[in-house]
C-alpha cells in the first residue's frame, strides 16, 4: 500500500480466495460477492445456511465460506424449507438460476412461497440455460435467438417469458419481492441493499423474500460482456422492470 492511503474496498472476507470458474463478465460472481459483503457486514456468516442449485452456480459452495447444501435440480426450495424448519434461528438462502427456479423447480418455488417459509430466494435470471449451452428458458425474451429457438422465441409456441417476481408477489406468505440488476454500479449497489433488506426480513420471520437479479450470459448470448450490459438495458429491463414489487407493510 502506498503511504497516505487507506483501503476503502476489498474482497469480502467470506468469499473464499480462489478463482471462480464463471465466464468473464458473468454476474454470478458479482452477486456472490455482494451477498458475502452483506453477510460480513451484518456479522451473520456463522448463522447462515445456503442452498446451491444445479446450473452454472452449482459450485457456489466452493466460493462462499458459509454452510451450504447442494440440492437436486429444482428442489432447492424444498431443501431450504427443511433447513429453515429444522433450524429456525438460522438465516436460510436459496441461490438459484432460471433453469432451476423457474423451469424444473417452479412447483417447489411456488409452494414454498405460498407457505411463506422463512427463506431468502436469490433468483438469477439471465433468460437462457447458460450451463448447457444457451437453450431457450421460460424467461427467454420474445424474439430472442437461442440454440433451441434459432428464429427467435415464438410466443405462439412457447408463450411469453415468465415473470416469477410478479407471480410470487401475489402470495400472502411472501413479504418482500424486488427485482434488481448489476448492469451498472448504481444497480449493483441497489442489489446489495436489497439483499441486506431480505436478510433483515428473514431475521424478523415475517415471510419469504424473493430477490430477482436480472443477469447476463455473455457466452450464451454470444456477445462480449460489455455488449451484454446494453442487451440488459435495452431488452431485458423494459420487459422485466426493476424495483420493489412487494414489501412488508404495503
Amino acid at each position: 500500500m502506498r503511504e497516505g492511503y487507506e483501503v476503502v474496498y476489498k474482497r469480502p472476507k467470506s468469499l473464499i480466495e480462489t478463482r471462480m470458474h464463471y465466464c468473464p463478465g458473468c454476474f454470478h460472481g458479482t452477486v456472490h460477492k455482494l451477498l458475502m459483503e452483506v453477510l460480513d457486514e451484518m456479522e451473520i456468516v456463522e448463522k447462515t445456511i445456503g442452498v446451491c442449485p444445479v446450473g452454472c452456480s452449482v459450485f457456489a459452495y466452493d466460493y462462499m465460506n458459509v454452510d451450504m447444501q447442494e440440492a437436486a435440480h429444482g428442489r432447492a426450495a424444498a431443501v431450504a424449507t427443511a433447513i429453515s424448519r429444522l433450524h429456525p434461528d438460522k438465516y436460510v438462502f436459496s441461490y438459484q438460476g432460471d433453469g432451476d427456479l423457474a423451469a424444473i423447480g417452479t412447483a417447489e418455488t411456488i409452494h414454498a412461497c405460498n407457505r411463506g417459509e422463512n427463506i431468502v430466494f436469490i433468483f438469477i435470471n439471465n433468460g437462457i440455460y447458460g450451463m448447457t449451452g444457451g437453450q431457450m428458458a421460460p424467461t427467454t425474451l420474445k424474439g430472442q435467438i437461442t440454440t433451441t429457438s434459432p428464429h427467435g422465441r415464438d410466443p405462439i409456441n412457447a408463450g411469453m417469458p415468465l415473470k416469477m417476481s410478479e407471480i410470487v408477489s401475489g402470495f400472502d406468505g411472501v413479504a418482500y419481492v424486488e427485482r434488481v440488476s448489476c448492469n451498472t454500479a448504481g444497480n449493483a449497489r441497489k442489489t446489495k441493499k436489497a439483499l441486506e433488506k431480505a436478510m433483515k426480513i428473514s431475521e424478523q420471520k415475517i415471510g419469504t423474500s424473493f430477490i430477482e437479479v436480472i443477469s447476463n450470459c455473455p457466452s450464451g448470448w454470444k456477445c462480449t460482456p460489455v455488449q451484454s450490459l446494453d442487451w440488459i438495458k435495452d431488452e431485458q429491463i423494459p420487459y422485466f422492470p426493476l424495483g420493489v414489487i412487494k414489501e412488508p407493510g404495503k
Binding site: E6, V8, Y9, R19, M20, Y22, G29, K192
Partner: peptide
C-alpha cells in the same frame, strides 16, 4: 477518485480500492 464503481461491478472481486487519507 476512489469511487469504488469498478470494484463493485467486478465479477471476480479482484479489485482493491485505496483512498487518500
Amino acid at each position: 477518485i476512489a469511487c469504488k464503481n469498478c470494484a463493485i461491478v467486478c465479477p471476480d472481486a479482484c479489485i482493491t480500492v485505496y483512498k487518500k487519507t
